[in-house]
Design a binder for these strands. Structure first.
Length: 285
DNA sequence: AGCTACTCCTGGTAGC
DNA sequence: TGCTACCAGGAGTAGC
């Protein structure tokens, strides 16, 4: 699933191909991808606009659109499970699951391909209302041990769903939460307010390290879905310590990795490296 | 506040 | 071989 490292990789690769390009035409093959706007309205808003910037915020790719030098709106792209962005030559073979196509003024097309149709390719006049509500970026300044210690103390939720919550912390998904919790040696069911200061510090370091390494390897590609816009798979999946490794030995201690379900999500951890905190699972006394 | 369940989707695969 | 049933899951929502 595309998470922060995959989305960052996509943004970096499409940016130089889109900056300064003007969108000449739009074709929509699956209207729901537009997030509620009609094909006609979407086409009207986007046609003739020029791409002024391509950035990533959380798991969104955000493109500023301008007309006559003024920013008039944004394309907000979310890959969800299986979304991919391609910039291909016009007339080149089109992927069967292409949902939205924007023809550009340089003979290329921006194509949004998405097998499972969960992804979104939306136009918004403003994005502040959406993006400002999200939690901090894990690789930027607002995310540090001091912040996390304070934030965890206020929450009674368990770590796994809390770290998946984009309003708490932006960008993590199922893979990198499991990997980060293993790296920090924290059990996924640990209540947030019971995480020690030392463990919170370890978690900050773990998240930053894992995301940086994953970006360096251009993300993870363990199935046929995620590819970089160059068509290349990422390679971080070879570094997985726990994700998708239920029943296999832990690479740290050789104990068998457990797979449980937490909040409808497959959750992988090492019972020895990530022991349960003392007081739960036992009868209160 | 925070939990569960449900929805959106389709390709892959297990089981027969 | 061909069929059915089930699974994966990010995010939004409803209900408790």
């Amino acid at each position: 699933m595309p998470e922060l490292p995959e989305v960052e990789t996509v943004a970096r690769l499409v940016r130089p191909r889109l900056l300064g390009r003007t969108i000449r035409g739009v074709r929509v093959n699956w209207e729901r991808t537009l997030g509620g706007r009609s094909r006609a309205a979407f086409g009207r808003l986007v046609r003739g606009a020029r791409v002024a910037s391509v950035e990533r915020r959380a798991k969104y790719i955000v493109m500023e659109l301008e007309r006559a030098g003024d920013v008039v709106g944004f394309l907000l792209v979310h890959l969800r499970m299986t979304g991919r962005l391609h910039v291909d030559e016009q007339g080149s073979e089109r992927h069967a699951h292409t949902r939205v196509t924007c023809t550009l003024d340089d003979g290329h097309e921006l194509r949004f391909v998405d097998v499972r149709k969960f992804g979104r390719f939306e136009y918004h006049h403003e994005v502040g209302g959406i993006l400002d509500r999200l939690g901090p970026e894990p690789l930027e300044q607002g995310f540090d041990a001091e912040w996390l210690i304070g934030a965890l103390a206020k929450k009674k939720r368990v770590l796994k769903p809390l770290l998946l919550d984009q309003f708490f912390l932006a960008g993590l998904g199922n893979i990198y939460v499991d990997e980060s919790l293993h790296e920090a040696r924290l059990h996924p069911l640990t209540p947030a307010h019971r995480v020690s200061r030392a463990k919170a510090r370890a978690l900050v370091q773990a998240i930053r390290k894992i995301l940086r390494e994953a970006i360096e390897r251009e993300g993870s590609s363990f199935d046929t879905f995620y590819r970089t816009p160059e068509g290349q798979p990422g390679s971080y999946q070879h570094q997985f310590q726990v994700y998708g490794r239920g029943g296999q030995p832990c690479r740290t201690c050789s104990r068998t990795i457990s797979r449980i379900v937490v909040g409808q999500r497959g959750t992988h951890f090492c019972p020895r490296c990530q022991p349960k905190p003392r007081t739960f699972g036992q009868a209160p006394r």
